[in-house]
Nucleic acid binder design. Structure first.
Ligand SMILES: NC(=O)c1ccc[n+]([C@@H]2O[C@H](COP(=O)([O-])OP(=O)(O)OC[C@H]3O[C@@H](n4cnc5c(N)ncnc54)[C@H](O)[C@@H]3O)[C@@H](O)[C@H]2O)c1
Ligand SMILES: NC(=O)c1ccc[n+]([C@@H]2O[C@H](COP(=O)([O-])OP(=O)(O)OC[C@H]3O[C@@H](n4cnc5c(N)ncnc54)[C@H](O)[C@@H]3O)[C@@H](O)[C@H]2O)c1
Lengths: 246, 246
DNA sequence: AGGCGCTTGTGAAGGCGTGCACAAATCGCG
DNA sequence: CGCGATTTGTGCACGCCTTCACAAGCGCCT
């Protein structure tokens, strides 16, 4: 969904797939369920109904049940879902039991905030290396890590077993950084730079663009405003039908 | 898509809607087209083909043409699209000609980065007010703005004509801040806190959650790894279907 | 032991989005 | 002035996703 995805040909011969190939839409919601489940676990709940979990995750309960049914049958009819079991299952599916190593490239304004964020560690990720091209930034300590020069990226990726790269450089440098990451063996990239990245097949790219989010909100503001201003009316200008013809 | 949307009952009686009600998927892509168009305009291009613009925006050319056709006919067959005209049209549709006023609540780690980001101003947004609950933060100057106490939010929203609020507080405070924003008259919220917000109908909420993005990438890493490790194999554990029953 | 209420899991239907393929339209050139 | 090259705009079919509605299953209470 508005995300770049370069798939690989499965060529799967087995009847039941080694990996339940969930719908993309489902995958995107699993993290939200997981968060809700963790919250429930903290409050001491042993089980949740689909209704309860759906409410906590902000979705329709039918959708939640269908999503979870793709993982297998981990609920009990008449009772609900076992919270701890479901957490384990979702974390397993998402591959969060591996505590993935992440590299962050570009420790500027945004990079500093990301490097100092503790919300990643608590969700199964370790930022294990920071990189920048600016000599001023290189060498400084940030949250227990030393910023290294971007030229060392290739070596570090291999040594630290990094599989995910986060790009927080200006847009002009993003493609070059992405190329370096891919060359080093990174197969997943989270891109904060406002630009389209070209990557080979088999590499996943997800983009986060705050300006785009604001622009989408702006559209809805515009729409709402035009509706309240002219209730049931028509466009302020350019209200052309097929009427005003030659 | 994975975004909260509280629609309002249209009750539209007119034949042709006052506002071209574009598909959500199209709206989400317009900002990307807009960026690509601005890039093209800077390089001096007067016109673009759907093929060219699609490549620059990272989408299929058929999809791009269908998207643009929803706005009207702003292309010329055999030639392409007029770059400047298309920019104007998209900016009008997105409501970017109004330079919307934005409030940022929570100037911590992430909030500082957002407040210092110049990429918003260049895309039609002005951050006009900063708020925090921490007395340590209140009063400090940031990028030409003074951080105000969150209690002043209601007054400021009205005075400054703020329609969009950005929440960058811890998750525990997010709902309360959202309530304040809505009470003050804000109808669009961009939420960085990892939690679900409840808002009344007519208010749009978009959420940005970096941990979710990483978890989605992690899933694909997991999938890719299991495919290469066990080509055509099955799940390491818990491969229960309806077999092991009784 | 049996019945009753509750909740899951899923078949089916409808809606939305995507991409193909082509007709319609425009420009440039001879 | 007509023709061919080019590119837009769109009808159509297909697949994915969502939502409804309900049968199947489970536990509890009597
Ligand atoms: N700051 C925000 O709130 C924000 C919001 C949305 C998007 N973004 C985007 O995130 C990116 C970073 O934003 P920022 O505000 O941190 O910018 P910044 O200029 O503060 O930081 C960029 C950093 O990247 C480094 N860099 C430049 N080229 C590099 C290279 N080739 N290799 C490695 N490092 C390199 C720079 O030295 C600098 O430290 C930009 O693309 C921006 O558009 C930022
Ligand atoms: N830092 C990141 O890179 C990052 C990444 C992803 C998500 N987030 C999320 O963004 C949010 C902010 O993250 P952060 O790292 O900046 O946290 P932070 O603790 O550094 O900043 C939070 C700020 O919010 C203020 N605040 C608290 N309660 C408030 C209230 N009721 N009203 C107004 N302000 C209030 C605090 O005083 C503080 O300044 C969190 O929800 C976090 O999970 C942050």
């Amino acid at each position: 969904m508005s995300q770049q995805r370069q798939g690989s040909t499965p060529g799967n011969t087995g009847a039941v797939p080694a990996f339940p190939d969930l719908p993309e839409a489902t995958i995107a919601r699993l993290p939200e369920y997981l968060r809700a489940l963790h919250n429930l676990a903290e409050t001491g709940s042993e089980t949740v109904s689909s209704e309860g979990l759906a409410a906590a995750a902000g979705v329709n309960s039918a959708k939640l049940r269908k999503d979870l049914s793709h993982l297998g049958s981990y609920g009990t009819r008449g009772v609900g879902y076992d919270v701890a079991l479901l957490i384990d299952q979702i974390e397993y599916i998402l591959g969060l039991d591996q505590r993935r190593a992440v590299a962050l490239v570009g420790v500027g304004n945004l990079g500093h905030a990301l490097a100092g964020y503790d919300g990643f560690a608590s969700r199964g990720f370790r930022i294990v290396a920071l990189f920048d091209a600016d000599p001023e930034q290189v060498g400084q300590a940030l949250n227990g890590l030393t910023v290294r020069h971007v030229e060392e990226l290739g070596r570090a990726v291999v040594e630290e077993g990094i599989t995910i790269g986060v790009i927080a450089t200006p847009a002009g440098a993003a493609q070059a950084v992405a190329d370096d990451l891919v060359a080093a063996g990174v197969t997943s990239i989270l891109n904060f730079a406002p630009c389209v990245l070209a990557v080979p097949a088999g590499v996943d790219v997800r983009k986060v663009d705050l300006a785009i989010e604001l622009q989408i909100l702006s559209f809805h503001e515009h729409r709402k405003a035009s509706l309240t201003a002219l209730p049931g009316g028509r466009s302020p200008q350019a209200g052309n039908q097929e009427a005003v013809g030659s």
